[in-house]
């Protein structure tokens, strides 16, 4: 059999092109993107509200103010109680599981699309990069909205508990009082929430995307969800 022109190597697409395709994809499946993003928003909102609420409690107690509603046992304890730690850990788990699940579903239902893109000449790395960009953007925007909602929720709860005193002692910035536990401050919590949301979304989607990208296209296209 005679040898024709040798098969060349596929080119790597410029980053801008990946960015454009991923944004296009987010825009077109806007409804589905919103649902996935809402999963992230809820997880982070829950975590941030519990965490911020806890910080507000500590800050107000440090300042000598007491809750107008909290029970005696709760206000008597300064610093993070076991119950608070438990609540934060629980909310973190809910957040991790919720986000991982949202992303996993969002990628798995697109296995066929991944297979098709590979048929048309997409490199494995390109497919993974596309999902990384999409999920990173969804993760960050979802987490930012979630963190703001969570903070708002915690502030409203604080207002109910402490009244307007809340604003005089609002733990906006990190503080490490000598006789009390270290406080991260609300800004840091919001930032951590955003980073966590983004990282979880990226991990949650990149693993199944990587697995799908590695599959031969025939197998990826056969996958039924």
């Amino acid at each position: 059999m005679q040898q024709r022109t040798p098969i060349e190597e596929q080119i790597d697409l410029p980053f801008v092109e990946s960015l454009r395709i991923s944004f296009q994809s987010l825009k077109i499946r806007f409804g589905r993107s919103i649902i996935t993003t809402a999963g992230i928003t809820l997880g982070i909102a829950f975590l941030v509200s519990v965490w911020t609420n806890n910080e507000i409690g500590i800050a107000l107690q440090e300042s000598g103010r007491q809750s107008t509603i909290n029970t005696f046992e709760e206000t008597a304890e300064a610093g993070i109680s076991t119950k608070d730690i438990w609540l934060i850990i629980m909310s973190l788990i809910v957040c991790v599981v919720g986000i991982a699940n949202s992303m996993l579903m969002a990628v798995t239902e697109r296995f066929r699309e991944i297979g098709t893109m590979k048929c048309l000449g997409a490199l494995d790395g390109f497919v993974v990069r596309l999902f990384l960009l999409e999920s990173g953007f969804q993760g960050f925007s979802g987490a930012l909205i979630g963190a703001l909602i969570g903070t708002l929720g915690a502030v409203l709860l604080g207002l109910k508990d402490y009244g307007l005193d809340l604003f005089f002692y609002f733990p906006l910035l990190p503080a490490s009082p000598e006789d009390g536990p270290m406080q991260l401050g609300v800004i840091v919590i919001i930032l951590l929430g955003c980073i966590l949301g983004m990282i979880l979304a990226v991990i949650g989607s990149s693993f199944p995307a990587w697995r799908a990208a590695k599959l031969p296209p025939a197998e990826a296209m056969r996958t039924e969800v």
Partner: peptide, 15 residues
């Protein structure tokens, strides 16, 4: 290689 297979699917074959 993986890159050659991608190029093959992209340029030589229409599915």
């Amino acid at each position: 290689s993986q890159k050659q297979i991608a190029a093959f699917r992209c340029h030589r074959v229409g599915y």
